[in-house]
Amino acid sequence: MKAIRAIAMNTFKEAIRNKILYSLIFFAFVMMLVSLFLDQATVGQRNKIIKDMGLGSINLFGAIIAIIVGINLVYQEIEKRTIYPLLAKPVRRVQFLFGKYLGIVLTLFVETVLMSCFLLLLVFVYEGRIDFYLTVSLLTIFIELTVVSAVAIFFSSFSSPFLSGMFTFAIFIIGHLTPYLKQFGRDSGNAFFEQAATFFYYVLPDLERFNFKAEAVYHLPIEPEKVILTVLYGLLYVSTLMVLSTLSFERRDFK
C-alpha cells in the first residue's frame, strides 16, 4: 500500500508540475468567461448559459486532461526508462499501475474542484447564491473523467501514445453516443449490424449516463438512486479496465 501511495503522490507531483495542465485549465476558465458575453443571443437565459457552458467546459477540458495525463504519465515512464529502477524495487507491476492511476485521479480531482469553484463563483456573482444543484453534475463529470483516464491507461498499457490518444478520444466521443448505437443497429435492418451494435453498446462505456447537466442547469428532479447507480457503474467500469490493463502490463517486456 505504501508503494501505491508513493507512486500516486509522485504521479500527482509530476502532473501538477506540467505546464500543459495549467494551459488547459486556463482555456476552461476562458470558455466559462466567454459565456458571460453570450447573453445577447439568449435573452433572460444568461444564468443557464453560464451553467451549461461551465459544466460543458469542465467536462471537455477535464476529458482532454484525463487523456493527455493518463497516456503521457504511463508512456513516459517506459519511453524515458524511469520505470526501470522502480520495477527493480519491491514494487509489483499491478501496484505501479494502480499508483499511476490513483495519481492521475487525484490530479483530475484537484483540477475538477478548481474549475468547479470557478464556475460556482461565476454563478454566485451572477445569481448572488451558490447553486449546490450543480454539484451533482460536477460529481458525475468527475466519475466520467475517472472512466476516461482508465481507458487511457488501458490503451497505454500496450500501445503507443499517439494511438492510445486517438483510441481514447474516439471512445470519449462514441461513449456519449452509445444510447443511439443500439437504436441505430435496430433501425439498420441488418442482423449482423444489429448484433455488432448491441455488442459495442455493452462493451463501450456509456458516458451519457454521467450527463446530469440538464437536470442541474434547469433544476429538474434527480433521483438519488440514479446517481448512486451511475457512480457504481463508473466504478465497475474502471475496475474492469484496470484488471485488463494489469493483465496486459504484467506480460509486457521493457526492452
Binding site: 509522485n10 509530476e14 524515458k80 529502477p85 522502480l86
Partner: peptide, 28 residues
C-alpha cells in the same frame, strides 16, 4: 537488491532529495 540502469534517466521535475525519498518510500 539495488539496481542502477544504463544511462539512467530519472524524473527530471523532482529534486535529488525528493527522488531519494520516493525510492526509500518504495522500499517501505
Amino acid at each position: 537488491l539495488g539496481f542502477l540502469p544504463e544511462r539512467p534517466y530519472f524524473y527530471e521535475y523532482l529534486t535529488g532529495l525528493e527522488f531519494l525519498h520516493f525510492c526509500g518510500e518504495l522500499h517501505g
